[in-house]
């Protein structure tokens, strides 16, 4: 018997399976990116070919930028995501600190109450959320989206951060308290910096669903001025459904920022995913 040969064959088989699946995962995205850069003829004659000097064209992109307020959508998405993210992290960390550090009546119930939001999708409350926003005169504002996304992101943030903060060594806190540091300074100058790794994980988990959401932009802020990128692309494509150049270009524009961000933060994200699950 030759166990080395056997092992070699097994390893090759594993790489074959993983490689094939990677291809399946990437091919559709690749196809969109490549064809967005081609003329209409190029798109239909040979979809799988890379753009050549003959077929290279930016026609679709020109159309997208002239016919839609793409940059506005993009900045709307950016503002909504970043502001919501900031408050989820800040308020989430503050609440987690209170829940993990202080013993007070009702703490367990409060923790459970917040945790419920992980299991129950906020979308189910949409009817009342819309009525609430109408009465607050917040419909078609970015504020409406931001408020809802903060409420959506807080439960998971608090769940992860509470666990993490509970593991901060007692000695660190006690040392600070012996120096008569106020509870606020203790939180902002000792606890928050120590929680950074967990905060990064929470940030990734919070950001993605907000950036990609279609439901709340569609219901709470469908107006032209507050449209997010996801909604904008959805409506743009609905309008120009037969204009393949524009459709492909708008899809590409929606994909690129996420891909770029992912390439920068993939290690962080995957570490967060795997670390969170080990517990």
């Amino acid at each position: 018997m030759n166990s080395n040969l056997q092992r070699g064959i097994n390893t090759s088989l594993i790489h074959l399976v993983l490689g094939l699946y990677t291809l399946v995962a990437l091919f559709p995205i690749f196809l969109i990116l490549v064809n967005a850069l081609k003329t209409r003829k190029g798109i239909f004659n040979d979809p799988l070919a890379l753009p050549t000097t003959d077929t290279l064209s930016f026609e679709g992109f020109q159309k997208v930028f002239s016919q839609s307020d793409f940059l506005l959508y993009f900045s709307n998405s950016l503002i909504v995501t970043l502001v919501a993210l900031f408050f989820v992290l800040l308020l989430g960390a503050m609440a987690s600190w209170a829940l993990s550090e202080y013993r007070f009546p009702g703490r367990r119930i409060l923790t459970l109450f917040m945790a419920m939001g992980i299991m129950v999708p906020i979308r189910l409350g949409t009817v009342s959320i819309l009525e609430l926003m109408v009465s607050l005169e917040l419909v078609n504002t970015r504020t409406a989206l931001i408020l809802v996304y903060i409420a959506q992101g807080l439960p998971l943030a608090i769940f992860i951060l509470t666990e993490y903060m509970a593991q901060i060594p007692k000695e660190l806190k006690e040392a600070a308290r012996c120096d008569d540091v106020s509870e606020y300074r203790l939180f902002f100058q000792v606890v928050l910096p120590l929680t950074r790794p967990a905060i990064a994980t929470v940030a990734v988990f919070t950001m993605i669903p907000i950036w990609n959401d279609l439901w709340f932009p569609l219901i709470l802020a469908p107006g032209e001025g507050t449209r997010t990128l996801t909604l904008g692309v959805q409506q743009f494509i609905g309008q120009y459904v037969t204009d393949w150049n524009s459709v492909l270009a708008s899809l590409t524009l929606a994909v690129i920022p996420v891909l770029v961000l992912y390439l920068f933060f993939s290690r962080q994200l995957i570490r967060g995913l795997t670390a969170g699950a080990v517990k």
Partner: peptide, 14 residues
């Protein structure tokens, strides 16, 4: 602050 936003825009609407 967190409790208020969560209650007002998630728990209460539900």
């Amino acid at each position: 602050p967190g409790l208020l936003i969560y209650t007002l825009f998630s728990a209460w609407p539900l």
